[in-house]
């Protein structure tokens, strides 16, 4: 079976290609921020209507 081993560039230094998110750290922070926002909204929904 073929097992070519293309070498990936260093994972964290690879460009994200996303406008406004030049590093992967910023992408991860955005993901965590949107998660925190959703949890906050769900807590607010729970508090408001319980």
């Amino acid at each position: 079976m073929k097992s070519p081993d293309p070498v990936e560039p260093r994972a964290e230094s690879e460009a994200t290609g996303l406008p406004g998110f030049r590093t992967w750290t910023k992408v991860y922070l955005f993901v965590l921020g949107s998660f925190a926002l959703w949890v906050g909204l769900l807590i607010a929904l729970t508090m408001t209507f319980s």
Binding site: P6, E8, A11, Y28, V31, S34
Partner: peptide
């Protein structure tokens, strides 16, 4: 799920791809 996917993106994925 979000934290799990970030951990996979940082640690699991690069290694799986590097070892092909």
């Amino acid at each position: 799920l979000p934290v799990a996917l970030i951990i996979i993106a940082i640690f699991f994925l690069p290694l799986f791809r590097r070892l092909n």
